[in-house]
């Protein structure tokens, strides 16, 4: 009888100690803000959060911890709409921030004009990452539709980068072949060669680099540089196509959340500080094109000048482009449906 009680007793004691230990550990006080971002910004924001914490400490004396959340840009936006308590969002496409503004009202509709340069503190573009020596001789977009080329790109439904990839291909074909119908045919042929469709840019890079799949990865310029430096110098090469697209990852504070949490000052300072020389250089070091012209020229060796299309002048803005290509039943879905019936 005593044995039973002691068995139970020990168990209860163990459970209680365990619970108390875990509870106290999790709820230790921290002043934090949450940055909900897209996939390839992990390394940049890790570095940026450090310099920002230092800056903020000297500015106010407060200790700041920035929590990061990364994923496909569309999915991250949906998370914020769903109630993920982001103080700031730093997403791959402005459209995702528009979505948050439209669907939840957590962000003011005029967000784009609240920070300098369309609220895009750094830009990037889409390049090709190929295996060293470029065995398939991939030089430009039209090499992607050769029958022996296997392409890796993520799913435009969930990945912001993938939408830039898609539009860049479309834009190239429109220039080269002259009209929309031929551009569509070209994009279709590119996706015919796609062998893996990951949900985010990082997944796609892993598939190409780590799993060794495919001959070419359509990647963010920064992601391509990072892959070479982090994962294997000499194993990959970057190919700049003749035309690409100016990708403007956008940032905004989330009005409703910062008001609720009282983090307005930190959140705004966090984004404003992105435009300082120090932060701009850090962006350059992390292979993002600084939006500050002067600092961009400091990195000119790293960022070749190529013809860049823009979403506003070449595709009529994100709203239009998204409706035409990426909503359910739009071009992308149709293209895939046709490919299946091929």
């Amino acid at each position: 009888m005593i044995k039973v009680n002691s068995f139970l007793g020990k168990f209860t004691l163990f459970a209680a100690v365990w619970a108390v230990f875990s509870l106290s550990a999790v709820y230790a006080a921290e002043i934090t803000i949450l940055n909900v971002s897209y996939d390839p910004t992990r390394e940049f924001y890790r570095a940026y959060n450090e310099i920002f914490a230092k800056h903020y400490k000297t500015l106010t004396g407060d200790t700041i911890i920035v929590n990061q959340s990364h994923g496909g840009s569309g999915g991250q936006a949906r998370g914020v709409i769903e109630g993920n308590p982001a103080d700031v969002v730093t997403l791959a496409v402005g459209y995702d921030i528009d979505e948050i503004a439209a669907k939840s009202g957590f962000i003011a509709k005029n967000w784009e004009s609240r920070l300098p340069r369309n609220s895009a503190p750094y830009t990037s573009t889409i390049v090709f990452l190929v295996r060293s020596g470029n065995p398939k001789k991939i030089k430009d977009w039209d090499d992607l539709i050769k029958s022996d080329v296997k392409v890796i790109t993520p799913d435009p439904k969930t990945s912001g980068g993938a939408r830039w990839n898609y539009l860049a291909a479309w834009g190239f074909a429109r220039i080269k072949y002259g009209d929309e119908a031929k551009a569509r045919e070209f994009v279709k042929n590119v996706y015919k060669n796609v062998i893996v469709l990951d949900s985010g840019a990082r997944g796609a890079t892993n598939t190409f680099v780590q799993k060794g799949q495919g001959d070419v990865l359509l990647a963010w310029e920064n992601e391509a540089h990072l892959s070479i430096n982090e994962l294997g110098k000499g194993r990959f090469e970057i190919v700049y196509p003749s035309v690409s697209i100016l990708a403007e990852p956008s940032v905004s504070w989330v009005d409703a959340n910062i008001a609720k949490k009282g983090t307005e000052k930190v959140a705004k300072e966090y984004l404003t500080y992105l435009y300082t020389d120090e932060a701009q250089r850090l962006a350059g070091k992390n292979y993002y094109r600084p939006s500050d012209e002067a600092i961009l020229t400091e990195f000119s060796a790293q960022f070749p000048v190529i013809k860049l299309l823009t979403i506003n002048s070449d595709f009529g803005g994100w709203e239009k482009a998204h409706q035409a290509h990426f909503v359910d039943g739009a071009e992308f879905d149709k293209i895939f449906a046709e490919l299946k019936n091929r």
Binding site: G74, R78, T158
Partner: peptide
């Protein structure tokens, strides 16, 4: 999950 991420 993809539908969920797309807000569908």
């Amino acid at each position: 999950v993809q539908k969920l991420l797309n807000f569908d």
